[in-house]
Design a protein around this nucleic acid. Sequence first.
DNA 1: CTTGACCTTCCAGTTGCTGGAAGCACTAGG
DNA 2: CCTAGTGCTTCCAGCAACTGGAAGGTCAAG
Lengths: 139, 139
Amino acid sequence: MNIGDVARLSGVPAKTIRYYEEIGLVKPQRSENGYRAFRENDLHKLAFLGRARMLGFSIEDCRNLLALYEDDTRESANVKQIAEGHLKRIDEKIEQLQSMRSTLAGLVESCAGDHRPDCPILEDLGSLEAGASCHENVD
Amino acid sequence: MNIGDVARLSGVPAKTIRYYEEIGLVKPQRSENGYRAFRENDLHKLAFLGRARMLGFSIEDCRNLLALYEDDTRESANVKQIAEGHLKRIDEKIEQLQSMRSTLAGLVESCAGDHRPDCPILEDLGSLEAGASCHENVD
DNA sequence: CTTGACCTTCCAGTTGCTGGAAGCACTAGG
DNA sequence: CCTAGTGCTTCCAGCAACTGGAAGGTCAAG
């Protein structure tokens, strides 16, 4: 199979597949003409990666999960541990976003949104006290 | 004020302040010795930026908000529009994360997490059907 | 006069791709 | 046999929003 075929079948864009090869996640063989030659196994790996990425796993998590996927002697505890770690990170992110959301929603609601310049949103943002002390990374 | 002072007072790291200058968000003057010389106004802008970033506004949003902040003839409707747009993006992100979360939580729960290799998480990730058709960007 | 804290610039790296240019490879049609 | 069109290759650049570090200038205290 050429890269276009696996791209279609796995749902992972060709560009991304080349990138995954570059960082060592897949290692397709090469045909005489220099084209990447994918086997069934590669296709499965790519689908695996696509799905894992859709669930928000980092590339490094994916690398580890893939290693476990390929390892018949794995212990499911290791898989679960990675998944739980990720779940925790998701929960933290959700909380952070919800906290942002509630602040922002409050501000939006309090703003008239008319032709006048008065704006509680800008007033809040401009207040020195509001943020000078706390320091979170949102991402 | 030197950069260290405004960094302390605004809560924005010095590195980040230099970056903000580079991309034109602040334009501090310079002292004889080449040091950046910040005035009260710059300090307020930086605090504004810090707070806006904490609420998840993009740099481009911040640029626009800052312009409105500085513009006495603004209409609060413009501010509100930016804030509402951002609020919508936050809500979408939250939904996406919650959808991930529920899938992942289900998988985690179904995994024994013991010394045996059987693992529903890996089985799900490995299934071709699961993700080949849908294509979202998570961020 | 030296130490240390501060400041400067510039360059590289982060995460996970994505777009584009330049250039082969292959297939179908005239 | 030539050509057009599609698909493949590599490499380089760029996105967001910083962050770290090197190499060096500046300033106040002891």
